[in-house]
Nucleic acid binder design. Structure first.
Length: 507
RNA sequence: GGCGGCGUAGCUCAGAGGUAGAGCACCCGGCUCAUAAUCGGGUUGUCGGUGGUUCGAGUCCACCCGCCGCUACCA
């Protein structure tokens, strides 16, 4: 089972381009594996505990639960908008999760890795949070710019320090554990500096999961959040499903939360006696005008700002085709529009339009199932094979290379029409048989094209599939069989409207 | 400060010791089935700088310049 996860998102913040990016890549990769015929479990969700949620609820005169029930809808809406195909959506306020948090923390405690100690440090009353000396700016709280006080409270701590060597050994033995390599280097150098124990509970807060052995504390939000990955896999009371699902194939994360996933989470799992996920895959940020998106800069862009213009598939294609998974990427409307017009409207959309138009015009949409396999057709077969091969890039989150490779099929198909000139064949009754062959091969290219674009653009692929008059869907798989270039069946195709209407820009 | 990464065509990027690449943009030509679409051809680079190793260096080494990431509790 391919178990793939996104982080659980903090619902106080709206899902913006960055959170949507993580989820989108996870979705495309999940679809790729399904297309290959693998069993997939794709998880996303929301992280609903913590001080900020409790406060936001209070400001609105609501209970925290009522507040999160309300705002979690934004995430369902966003993922519906982008055709995200998650199998499960976990919320940390669900019983299945809170009970799992308690079970896992108990397992860590039973392993002797949890102890009680006094935590003392600079505390900002306004933030209701502790800081480290390093975080203070000129000795005052960086947010409120007010002096901090030294506060102390009794907390439970996790013996993270005991796991540094095992963590390093694991990373060395499993080079794929943290990707890309530059992030792996960061993790290694961090662990090599030595690890300190971390506090895993808060006594000052009530909106969280109570510790099973001390109800006056709730689990620190990160402990709570990370455990979602096993909660949703059935750790607590579905042993068969858990055995099939865990360890995860990949946790996708933004680079800002890498350390929690590549250090703290593995140590927690080791302590609880569970195997580690195969891979933590970390991506960069999406920059707008070279700057990080943030509310304060007012440059935050939401998926809903782009989908009305580009459609869910135009949205998905742009981010998968133009953003490399590891480094930071840039977003611009101009770049997105240029990509849309060049690849979707021109190469792919127009190919679909002209091919179906030819089939309707010369054969009323019913092209006989006659195949040719001469020198003219060779590039089509090669293009189809190249597309299928390139698709494997999804296994390493190389979405860019995967789609670049898929486009070789569309280039070949456009060139094929130029080489065979069906519009000329149609003028000569003696060439009727050859025209059938050319139209059949062109339609077959579209059939394969619908399959190989499905992980990235499921809606367009399914629309195309329907126009081709085929049974089932392009995502049915298995890829190795369905994407083999052969003879297009004797069905009736319909032209329909342009799949990707060209976007007019000012220039 | 320490560790790590990046700097290649106007743009986005690939290449990691053997004649500088792709896509977009741009120019020329063809075609007319098609969404001013498509096909063919073409131009563009002191591969950040300096020095070194080598028969040969984007590719290895040293130093320098510029940008960036990490250096513990930020969802």
């Amino acid at each position: 089972m391919i178990y793939i996860t996104t982080p659980i998102y903090y619902p106080n913040d709206r899902p913006h381009l960055g959170t949507a990016y993580t989820t989108l890549v996870a979705d495309a990769v999940a679809r790729y594996w399904r297309l290959k015929g693998e069993e997939v479990w794709f998880l996303t969700g929301t992280d609903e505990h913590g001080l900020k949620i409790a406060r936001a609820a209070e400001e609105r005169g609501m209970t925290p639960q009522a507040w999160v029930d309300h705002i979690v809808e934004r995430f369902h809406e966003a993922w519906d908008l982008l055709d995200i195909s998650h199998d499960d959506f976990i919320r940390t306020t669900e019983d299945r999760h809170t009970a799992t948090v308690q079970a896992l923390l108990t397992a860590m405690r039973d392993a002797g890795d949890v102890y009680e100690a006094r935590y003392e440090g600079p505390y900002c009353v306004s933030c209701e949070a502790y800081y480290t000396e390093d975080q203070l700016v000129d000795g005052v709280c960086p947010i409120h710019e007010r002096p901090t006080e030294i506060h102390a409270e009794d907390n439970y701590f996790f013996r993270l320090s005991a796991y540094a060597d095992r963590l390093l050994a694991h990373i060395e033995a499993n080079p794929e554990f943290v990707t890309p390599e530059t992030r792996r280097n960061e993790v290694v150098s961090f662990v090599e500096q030595g690890l300190e124990d971390i506090s895993i509970s808060r006594a000052s807060l009530t909106w969280g999961v109570p510790l099973p052995w001390d109800g006056s504390h709730v689990a620190y939000v990160w402990m709570d959040a990370l455990i979602n990955y096993v909660s949703a896999a059935g750790y607590l009371d579905e042993p068969d499903r858990f055995a099939a699902t865990w360890p995860a194939w990949a946790h996708l994360v933004g680079k800002d939360i890498l350390r929690f996933h590549a250090i703290i989470w593995p140590a927690m799992l080791m302590s609880a006696g569970l195997p580690l996920p195969r891979q933590i895959a970390s991506h960069g940020f999406l920059l707008v005008g070279g700057e990080k998106m943030s509310k304060s800069r007012a440059n935050q862009i939401l998926p809903g700002d782009l989908v009305p213009t580009f459609g869910p598939d135009g949205y998905r294609y742009h981010f998968l085709r133009d953003v490399s998974f590891g480094p930071d990427g840039n977003f611009s409307w101009e770049g997105m529009a240029a990509r849309y017009n060049a690849d979707l409207a021109n190469d792919f959309g127009n190919l679909v339009n002209r091919t179906l138009n030819l089939a309707e015009r010369y054969r009323d949409g019913a092209v006989p199932a006659v195949a040719a396999d001469g020198p003219d057709e060779a590039p089509l077969r090669e293009g189809a094979a190249a597309a299928v091969e390139a698709l494997a890039g999804f296994e390493e989150f190389k979405t860019k290379q995967a789609l670049e490779g898929v486009w070789r099929l569309f280039r070949a198909a456009n060139a094929y029409l130029e080489a065979t000139e069906p519009w000329k064949l149609a003028k000569d009754p003696a060439q009727a048989g050859r025209l059938d062959e050319v139209l059949n091969a062109s339609l077959e290219a579209l059939r394969v094209g619908a399959i190989v674009t499905w992980p990235a653009m499921p809606r367009a692929a399914e629309t195309l599939w329907a126009r081709l008059g085929l049974d089932g869907g392009p995502g049915d798989g298995p890829l190795a069989e369905t994407a083999r270039f052969g003879t297009f069946p004797a069905v009736t195709v319909t032209k329909g409207d342009p799949l990707f209407p060209r976007i007019e820009t000012d220039e």
